[in-house]
Simulated scan of single mutants.
Amino acid sequence: MTAVSTSQDAVAVFAPLRPTLVRVAYRMLGSVADAEDVVQDAFIRWMRADRGEVREPEAFLRRTVTRLCLDQLKSARHRRETYVGPWLPDPVVEEEEDDVTLPLMLALERLTPLERAAFLLHDVFGLGFEEVAATVQRDPAACRQLAARARGHVRQAGPRFRMEARRGLALAEAFFAASRGGDMRTLRAMLAEDVSAHADGGGKRPAAMEPILGIEAVMAILEKLAGLFRANGSKLVRTGFVNGLLGFVTLEADGELQTTALDIEDGKIAAIYVVRNPDKLRHLH
């Protein structure tokens, strides 16, 4: 077999695994760009590896990606601590709901890198603890403990009762229409009393520097924003699931995209998550 055909075979093996590897990396890092970089690095290592010794390419690549992510998380934690305003994961917009929702990803931020890896690999991707242990280079018993501790931290952020998709998307569209049109009565009826609003501008676009808590405070900011939307415009680009939550993408007056995700509980909006940082929205263009 020639070197060219060997390389072609390696690419053919890697290509169908790439989407899953990106999902693993994204859920570890919360950044689309970083996830893409990690998977590209894993591909380079795959091409340089002695592939004749690799019995299970998928396991080899998943281990490589996870270990690269563990290295990345050390520096990512420092970047989170110095981030300007609330930090939210990069928005991923999909047609279908996802079990790994935005609140769960925020809960993962409170875990150690090893707890995060053990939880994601076992509880989300369904790997046995023997495989988890081989990936994070710990023994299976330790990995069980890591996953159990992680589970305790993220239990409250697990998937809520799921609203029927068509009804939920209609609610997201109604929220867009009311918030842009200034229909305060309709907006108040949509919100839970303890609603919170979180905006990630990263210091690059205007956004609240702290979460806004409670219906009165959230209504006040929505009323102020409605005036700006009426004066400057805000165009609905699409509705869908933003990090597993119902939401929408808009094109704002400054020419930049924005995502809004709505965490709905008992038919009311319990939390609003808005990403405005243009660095986190480039992949949506």
Rank of each mutant, 00 (worst) to 15 (best):
V124I: 06
V124H: 02
V124W: 07
F125Q: 08
F125S: 08
F125W: 07
G126N: 02
G126V: 05
G126A: 03
G126D: 00
G126F: 01
G128E: 07
G128R: 07
F129P: 02
F129L: 05
F129C: 00
E130R: 06
E131P: 06
E131F: 01
E131G: 01
V132D: 03
V132A: 06
V132H: 05
A133H: 12
A133E: 04
A133M: 08
A133C: 08
A134I: 00
T135F: 02
T135N: 06
V136Y: 02
V136P: 12
V136R: 06
V136F: 04
R138W: 03
D139M: 10
D139G: 09
P140C: 09
P140H: 12
P140W: 13
P140Y: 12
P140V: 13
A141C: 02
A142P: 11
A142R: 09
R144A: 10
R144M: 08
Q145T: 15
Q145R: 11
L146K: 13
L146S: 04
L146V: 05
L146N: 08
A147M: 02
A147Q: 13
A147F: 03
A148H: 15
A148D: 15
A148K: 04
R149T: 00
R149E: 09
R149C: 00
A150C: 01
A150Q: 07
R151M: 03
G152W: 07
G152D: 01
G152V: 05
H153Y: 12
H153M: 00
V154G: 01
V154R: 07
R155L: 08
R155P: 00
R155Y: 07
Q156S: 11
Q156C: 09
Q156I: 07
A157I: 12
A157M: 11
A157R: 09
G158R: 15
G158P: 02
P159A: 14
P159H: 10
P159T: 15
P159V: 13
P159D: 14
R160T: 14
R162C: 14
R162S: 15
R162H: 06
M163I: 12
M163E: 15
M163C: 14
E164R: 12
E164T: 13
E164F: 05
A165P: 05
A165L: 06
A165R: 06
R166Y: 00
R167Y: 05
G168V: 05
L169P: 05
A170P: 07
A170K: 01
A170H: 04
L171K: 12
L171Y: 06
A172N: 11
A172M: 12
A172G: 10
A172K: 08
E173K: 13
A174M: 14
A174G: 14
F175I: 13
